[in-house]
């Protein structure tokens, strides 16, 4: 199976195939290599991951599409991207949606459906852990819908304001 995995703000197409006893790992169109993941019987709950001749101990915890891993003296988050989400993000972006950079609460809403706005115009103020951020219009256009009202909370990457579809030139 092949999926995109995001790590450190980079994206990689990863393929895993084969049988449980004989698995192969491939990044993009590179050479597939034998791979195995085993769980050590120790009090640490550490796994050992091996690709070809390289191996390392690793501790992991996963939830949903996120995998949190600790290895090489640091912690790294990996996100396994669902292909439909991936395609939707790629196409739906196009400056029609203003998304939240972090989870938080809506403090103030400055626009409403039908308003004509200019690029950079403040549309909403949000607050996260007592830090205020202004959400500005990504381009000139018309507001289609504001999705959250003051006092409501939202997650990271939530669509806060949608603009009316712009005709492609």
């Amino acid at each position: 199976m092949r999926r995109r995995i995001d790590i450190e703000n980079q994206q990689y197409e990863v393929t895993v195939f084969g049988r449980p006893e004989e698995r192969f790992f491939q990044v993009a169109d590179g050479a597939p290599k034998p791979v195995s993941l085993s769980l050590e019987e120790n009090e640490n709950d550490a796994h050992t991951i091996q690709i070809g001749n390289n191996r390392t101990q690793i501790r992991m915890a996963a939830k949903g599409e996120m995998v949190y891993a600790s290895a090489f003296g640091r912690t790294v988050s990996l996100c396994i991207v669902d292909p439909v989400e991936q395609a939707a993000q790629a196409s739906g972006g196009r400056g029609n949606k203003a998304r939240s950079p972090m989870p938080g609460t809506v403090v103030e809403v400055n626009v409403t459906a039908g308003d004509h706005i200019k690029k950079g115009q403040p549309m909403m103020t949000i607050e996260s852990m007592k830090i205020l951020t202004v959400i500005s219009a990504p381009r000139d256009g018309e507001v289609l819908q504001v999705h959250f009202e003051p006092g409501k909370t939202f997650d990271k990457n939530a669509v806060l304001v949608t603009l009316v579809e712009k005709e492609e030139l």
């Binding site: 999926r3 995995i5 790590i7 895993v16 698995r23 790992f25 990044v27 796994h47 991951i49 990996l78």
Partner: peptide, 17 residues
Amino acid sequence: QRNLLLAAAALSHRDFI
């Protein structure tokens, strides 16, 4: 190192295996 991390994440995630 990055590949080891990618592989570990992939092999522990249902979508891949």
